[in-house]
């Protein structure tokens, strides 16, 4: 272990601001990427459901007409 205490770990030998800022920004950027991908997936699912319902309505109407 390179640090004696939590305090020393946070301070990073005086470079705490830079180290944690770098790691924070990286984590944030990757989190945005992951969430963006997951939301795209949900959006596709919703689009698919909408299309399915439309098709069902169409089929029902066809049945009613005939």
């Amino acid at each position: 272990m390179a640090f004696d205490s939590w305090q020393a770990f946070i301070e990073m030998g005086g470079y705490g601001f830079y180290v944690w800022l770098a790691f924070g920004i990286s984590f944030f950027a990757i989190a945005v990427l992951v969430i963006n991908g997951l939301r795209a997936r949900t959006k596709l699912q919703r689009e698919f459901d909408k299309e399915q319902r439309r098709q069902q309505r169409l089929a029902q109407r066809k049945k009613e007409v005939s």
């Binding site: 390179a2 990073m12 470079y15 830079y18 180290v19 990286s26």
Partner: peptide, 21 residues
């Protein structure tokens, strides 16, 4: 890299950014 690797003799702990960079 953050906890167990030793500090750099020139750059101190700032070099730990290397593990992402």
């Amino acid at each position: 890299g953050l906890v167990f690797a030793p500090a750099d003799y020139q750059q101190g702990d700032s070099y730990r950014i290397i593990f992402v960079h």
